[in-house]
């Protein structure tokens, strides 16, 4: 299975790779939002915690 044949996808390269592209974007977006939200919450609570017992 040569490499460029793999990428050609029997002539449907555009469709197959765009579909997989979109799915990677959507999955990555989910991960990114979840991790960013967690980091933001922890920082925010730490700040509030810090200000409480200061």
């Amino acid at each position: 299975m040569s490499l460029n044949n793999f990428f050609a996808m029997g002539g449907y390269a555009a469709y197959v790779w765009s579909a997989y592209g979109i799915s990677f974007i959507v999955l990555f977006l989910n991960i990114f939002l979840a991790v960013r939200n967690e980091r933001k919450t922890i920082d925010e609570l730490k700040k509030r915690l810090g200000s409480n017992n200061k």
């Binding site: 996808m9 029997g10 197959v16 997989y20």
Partner: peptide, 11 residues
């Protein structure tokens, strides 16, 4: 359909 059926693995 040739290779375009591989979209099934995501759809």
């Amino acid at each position: 359909q040739g290779d375009s059926f591989r979209i099934i693995y995501v759809h």
